[in-house]
Each structure stands twice: as C-alpha cells, then as structure tokens.
Design a protein around this nucleic acid. Structure first.
Lengths: 122, 122
DNA sequence: TTGACATATTCCTATATAGGAATGTATTGT
DNA sequence: ACAATACATTCCTATATAGGAATATGTCAA
C-alpha cells in the first residue's frame, strides 16, 4: 500500500509545507488566487492544485466574485489537529518537570559541585 | 517533485494514522515492540518500520533492555505541531462568535418568525 | 555452540503525489 | 463577438512510500 492520499484528512493535507503557508496566509482574511501566488512564490497551477486539496478536506472555503475566487482558511477544520496534539500536553509538561526535578536533585546532592555562579538566594 | 519524505518532519510523520496510534499508545509509558504489535494489529516488520520513522524525526525515544527495546513517545516533539495549530485558535473562536451573532441577529429581526418553540423570555 | 526469541532491515510492488508545461473554462470590457 | 484576464484541470515524470515476504542481526539460555 502506498501513502494515504493528501486529501484523506487534514493531517495529510497539512503535511505539505506550502499548504501550511497558504493556510497561515489565508487565515487573516479572504484573498484571491493571484495574491496567494504572489505570497507563496509558486506558479499559479501549483497553487490552484494546493487549494484544491485544501478545499477537498474543508480547510479552506471559496467564494466567487466575478472572475476572482476568494479563498479563506476555515480555522474550524484545524481544530481537530489542535485537539489531538493537546492530548500530549500534560506529558511534555511532565518531561519538563522531570528535567527540572533532576536538576534540583543535582543541586541537592552536590551543593557547590561546579565552580561559577549558581547562587540560590544566599 | 514527489511528496516530501515522511521523515522530513513531525508533520509528515504524523500524517500516517498508525503512527498517531502508536504515539498515543506510547505516551503513557514505555512499551516493548511486541506490545505495540499487539496493540495496533499490524505485523512486526511494519511496526518496526513505523517506529523507525518516528525515531528519525525524534517523536519517540528508545532504550535497550536485553533483547527488548523499550519505546516511549517524546511528547516534546509534538509541541511544535500544537503550537502551529494554536495560531489558528483565535480564528475559530471568531467563527463561532460570528455564528452566534448571526443566530442572535436572526432572532432580533424575526422574533417569532417560525412556528414552534423559540421563546426568548416572553 | 546451538537454538529460540525479539527486533530491524532488505526487496518488491501498487499507488500517490508535487511541480512543470500545456490546455480548458468562465467572466468581463470593448 | 472577441480578446484579455483569472483560475482550474490534464498530462507527464521522478520520487517516496506502506505493507507483505523473506532475511539479517543481536541477545539470552542451556
């Protein structure tokens, strides 16, 4: 089996750096394709294809205005990613805590082990 | 150009559902490969390959213990993803606010437009 | 040493791109 | 109607899988 399609879900869609760049660019407000092309420095067909992927997974919304299409990021669609990563939050806090505790234990065991500074409210 | 390597960064690595599953499984504590195999229901070589990808991008840490290898999730490596998605947080809040405001405006403009219920402190 | 066990690596193949080039499709101004 | 503008889509190709099968590597036990 090959890799899952980029359009299979938001996780796959945002794996591509240019698409993340586009999402960041489009989150502040509507932009037409030409502006996106100028912003990301890719040619127009490539940008349109990235927009197609983002559209398919619901990460952007489009609106037509004359010959222009106005795209904007659908932040709601990013929320599940945020929530998945959030489930790890308490664990990286644990990691930091462990590091801190280890450092403090170090100080306890070897109060003035290393020469310079390290004054703790003397 | 083809898609970026799954090992190019955490974003690409977590695009694969089984790898996300493994990360969730390994975040609560160390597990040996056999346990992971049992948990995700893939064959051992496939699991080892996924672990290889996760190792390469620093999403897991390994420790050898006899003939076993004990893996655990490195939550710190997930933090950048969390932070990237967090930059969109205020925008989906805006979206919800807009939806709410629109709903309220609706009620203001058409107090008892639709037949049933919808009583607003009468 | 030999064998059993735990895990990693290699080989293979079907599939899915990302971007470049060329072309198709609406929509507007004259 | 016609040309120009703004996008989207199609065709092409090099590249990178994910998983299955087979094999290699490393470690312990007797």
């Amino acid at each position: 089996m090959a890799r899952a399609a980029t359009t299979s879900d938001a996780f796959n869609a945002i794996a591509e750096p240019r698409r993340r760049q586009i999402l960041s660019f489009l989150v502040v407000g509507e932009r037409q394709v030409g502006e996106i092309v100028a912003a990301v420095g890719l040619d127009q067909p490539s940008v349109s294809k990235h927009l197609g992927v983002l559209r398919e997974v619901g990460l952007v919304h489009v609106r037509r205005n004359g010959r222009h299409r106005l795209y904007r990021t659908n932040a709601e669609a990013i929320r599940p990613l945020h929530e998945w990563t959030a489930t790890f939050e308490r664990y990286w806090q644990h990691t930091l805590l462990r590091v801190k505790q280890r450092a403090e234990a170090q100080i306890q065991d070897h109060p003035q082990s290393d020469s310079k500074s390290h004054k703790e409210k003397p």
